[in-house]
Amino acid sequence: MNLAQEVGLVAGKDLRIERRARVTLQQILPFGAIVLLLFAFALDPDRGVLRRVAPGLFWVAVLLAVLLAVSRAFTIETEHAARDGLRLSGLDPAAIFLGKAAAIAVQLVVLEALLAAGVVLLFDVSLSSIGPLVLATLAATVGLAATGTLYGVLAVGLRMRETLVPVLLLPVVSPVLLGATRAWEAAIDGAPSDAWPWVGVLSVFAVLAVGAGMLAFGPLLEEA
């Protein structure tokens, strides 16, 4: 098998498990929706506050969902010593990394689409510049999934991984939160030219995260 086939094998396995367990739809999505709803109640909807902060709230909700998705992606590898099976499988560690990150990214895209619909309905936001908005979202999703996968494997063997992953991951992905929020603000304000530089920043972050993950995942999987 070549790298692409190995990536497909790992991603297919993780997505099949997710389809059966439905953790994204039944636990992570409601969690993200509750976060949005709580902010909607907490902030004053009459003065346009919600519309202004909608991009930031959306990405905070996505970021919290990433933590749950990453935790879930590595919980399945700790049960029944499946991680040993993965290490002995003969698969290229880079392919395991890309496959697991791809599976998380697919789940995030579904989640983001549903949460974005929630933002439009709840916060009275119109998404005018779809092109940069979609590209920024995809680049941010790849960056978050890749970084989450890398930090997920780092903490996989630790008892305190549920608390350690957020502490390690959130500071690292803060540029994604910033860039994606700015890109969304520009898209919502109908100023796509302001969004493109942020799309560039998010794309660079995504490329760096994927590259670092392909290099570091193997050693981390061995030592975790």
Binding site: L9, K13, R16, R20, E79, H80, D84, G85, G90
Partner: peptide, 25 residues
């Protein structure tokens, strides 16, 4: 290596667990 645990995934069927390992190898 057959260790103390199965190294399998709960949400995959018996056939799917074997298929994954076989294709990976």
């Amino acid at each position: 290596l057959v260790g103390h645990e199965s190294a399998c995934y709960d949400d995959l069927t018996t056939r799917e667990n074997v298929d994954f390992a076989v294709r990976a190898a």
